[in-house]
């Protein structure tokens, strides 16, 4: 081990004649995590760099789980200061953090993100979805006439007569995305309950956990495609499959209204207003987590966090809302929380 370390560091020293530079303290805030939060974080980082004497923070993407994993690696200049997440931190991650000495964590909710169901603007006429449509179209198995069978549906109008006669082809977020979790809980599980399939699963002798996972199991015969990349990839898939329907974030849709048309969910059109009011059913909170041990060590960290939740940025008239973030009605409480450094 020590030989490896020696080799590595001697390589480093060879590269930089001023070897002290490596040990020099970090003066910029480092952030990593959810690709959904990335645009917001980078907008704030940019404005922060313009408005203060601190350097522009560095924002990396990689996904909520990857970001939180790096966040929990430990305390020190070689670890990130803030993890962005499109879901709340999990119990297991908190334990992992605690095991590595990351005990004081400040949870900051920046607002909400809507998940929208959109298709090509010149594609079939998808205008209104219900959660039950999605469950019936995408479930791996579902009860038909009292028997649990493999999903027999091939076109949307078999699922719901109001939907167009188009082949079922859905592009949904892959399992590494935080969006997938919201999709499963708020759409598939909800649809499963609405259609009575959950009850049917329970009646067939499954326990509650098994029934819920049966609800969230997605068919694997090609009608549903997991997208592990970004929404850009989903958009590209729709380009080559005019019949398809994709799952997007509200902000992505709003930036691509020339190519996409959105469908209502449960009769509600996704807009920042309907999401803020809680009418639109498929939305989720966005968070970032601050390592409290780095406050006062990394210059600009607290200022950046305060800047992020300031009314001018995260408020309803700020640039984040303009980009597609649904601002949090309880922003004032969040601002106080950051100002007082309240840990979890």
């Amino acid at each position: 081990m020590s030989i490896a370390k020696l080799t590595a560091s001697s390589l480093a020293i060879a590269a930089v004649t001023a070897s002290a530079a490596v040990a020099q303290s970090r003066d910029n805030v480092q952030i990593a995590g959810s690709s959904t939060v990335l645009p917001y974080a980078s907008i704030v980082a940019e404005v922060f760099g313009e408005n203060t004497d601190f350097p522009t923070p560095v924002v990396e993407s990689g996904g909520s789980s990857a970001g939180l994993a790096r966040f929990c690696e430990g305390v020190g200049e070689n670890t990130i200061d803030i993890a962005n997440a499109s879901r709340a931190i999990r119990e297991g991650e908190l334990e992992e953090c605690a095991a590595n000495g990351v005990t004081d964590i400040i949870e900051v909710r920046i607002g909400y993100d809507g998940i929208v169901f959109a298709s090509r603007i010149d594609g079939p006429d998808f205008t209104a979805f219900e959660a039950s449509d999605w469950f019936t179209a995408l479930a791996a198995e579902l009860p038909v006439d009292g028997e649990i069978v493999e999903n027999p549906h091939t076109t949307w109008n078999e699922v719901d007569a109001d939907l167009p006669d188009a082949e079922i082809l859905a592009f949904i977020p892959g399992t590494k995305h935080g969006t997938r979790e919201v999709f499963e809980e708020k759409v598939l599980l909800q649809g499963c309950e609405d259609t009575g399939a959950l009850q049917a699963f329970l009646d067939s002798g499954m326990d509650e956990d098994a029934a819920e996972s049966a609800c969230m199991a997605v068919r694997t015969d090609g009608a549903s495609v997991d997208i592990d990349g970004d929404y850009t990839e989903t958009l590209a898939r729709l380009d080559s499959n005019p019949q398809g329907v994709g799952v997007f974030g509200l902000s992505f849709y709003e930036n691509n209204t020339d190519k996409l048309k959105v469908a209502t969910m449960g009769g509600v059109e996704p807009t920042t207003e309907t999401i803020a009011a809680g009418d639109y059913p498929v939305s989720r909170p966005l968070y970032f987590y601050i390592k409290a041990a780095h406050l006062g060590v990394i210059p600009g960290l607290k200022e950046f966090a305060q800047f992020f939740v300031a009314d001018e940025l995260a408020g309803p008239d700020g640039p984040l809302a303009a980009y597609g973030l649904v601002s949090d009605p309880e922003l004032a409480a969040t601002q106080a929380k950051v100002a007082n450094e309240e840990t979890m």
């Binding site: 370390k5 490596v22 970090r26 990130i80």
Partner: peptide
Amino acid sequence: VFIQFAGLPQSAPL
């Protein structure tokens, strides 16, 4: 090796 073990900075061109 370089970041987690040798402790070189993240995202650095080095």
